[in-house]
């Protein structure tokens, strides 16, 4: 039944770019009414998609969440205390249009940059959490992302708390030049120090985790979890396709591919994420009294 509805929607709206008469009709319907799955290309009403917590009912692709959506699905209600909520980036290499672009994005997303960090509890267990939001410059890592994550890790080290990062990123933020590259070393170094204290870091790879973030903190989790069907990789798919002059299979650089190759520990569905995290935390000796039993 529902499937039939999708088919109708699909035939009506699939693949039109506003040129055919179908496109004219499409104009009557707001863009955000429909969601087209980037994996299976099925179309679904946005309301339906949202009700499914942005998981595609046809192929189980786990779509991109905003910070607030992610927090709502992950942590105990009302437990979040944000760190560094007012930090914004400068324009270190005077990149043309960077400041304007950020001002616009700040308005549109109500974010100050691509990551939100803070303290929260998951089923009563206290954690330091960081969530990246791909709406903000594809969650690329510049000074603010690097600094906020590093501070969060350092705070966790100080307070002997576990760290959970929901990673998503297009990579280093090239608008900040070499400074963005250095954030990779900075965050990785902070993780190394956190690890040295015997503390747990769980990295959750969400859609998409690529480039300099894959090549730094995202790949350094004691436990690396991925959501189903998300993109995970280092190099851009098109860059590789350009080099080898052929199209790569859809399976390449997915969570499932990375699991098979040994770079992801487990794939966890969104509906089981909170309980999985809570169990893993407990297995590492973190309790809801926030006591670390060593």
């Amino acid at each position: 039944m529902l499937e039939d509805l999708f088919k109708v929607v699909k035939t009506r709206f699939n693949g039109t770019e506003g040129k055919s008469d179908e496109g004219v009709r499409k104009k009557d319907i707001p863009d955000d009414l429909l969601f087209k799955c980037p994996r299976c290309l099925q179309t679904i009403f946005s309301e339906e998609y949202a009700a499914l917590n942005k998981v595609c009912p046809s192929c189980n692709y786990h779509g991109r969440l905003t910070v607030n959506e992610r927090l709502r699905l992950t942590i105990d209600k009302g437990s979040f205390v944000e760190y560094d909520s007012d930090m914004i980036s400068k324009n270190p290499i005077d990149f043309p249009g960077y400041a304007e672009k950020q001002a616009k994005l700040r308005c549109e997303t109500n974010l100050k940059d691509a990551v939100v960090t803070g303290e929260a509890t998951i089923r009563g267990i206290k954690v330091v959490i960081g969530v990246m939001d791909s709406r903000y410059m594809m969650a690329s890592m510049g000074s603010v992302v690097g600094e906020k994550l590093t501070r969060a890790i350092e705070t966790a080290t100080e307070k002997k708390l576990p760290v959970i990062f929901f990673c998503a990123s297009g990579g280093a933020r090239m608008q900040e030049g070499i400074i963005s590259l250095m954030q990779m070393a900075k965050t990785s170094g902070a993780i190394a120090k956190h690890s040295e204290q015997g503390l747990l870091y769980i990295s959750v790879l969400t859609d998409p985790t690529t480039g300099g973030v894959t090549a730094s903190f995202a790949s350094l989790g004691d436990i690396i979890i991925a959501e189903p069907k998300v993109v995970i990789g280092f190099a851009g798919r098109r860059v590789i396709e350009g080099t080898i002059k052929q199209r790569l299979p859809d399976y390449f650089q997915t969570a499932e591919f990375m699991l098979e190759k040994g770079f992801v520990d487990m794939i966890v569905e969104r509906k089981r994420m909170r309980s999985t995290l809570a169990h893993l935390l407990k297995l590492h000796g973190y309790t809801d009294e926030n006591r670390y039993n060593n």
Binding site: S188, F234, A235, I240, F252, F257
Partner: peptide, 19 residues
């Protein structure tokens, strides 16, 4: 940047060196 490099964990290899 290549298929084999990805399959053998280019990102992980770099990340590990940084840490």
């Amino acid at each position: 940047c290549g298929v084999e490099a990805e399959a053998r964990g280019q990102g992980e290899a770099i990340a590990k060196n940084l840490a």
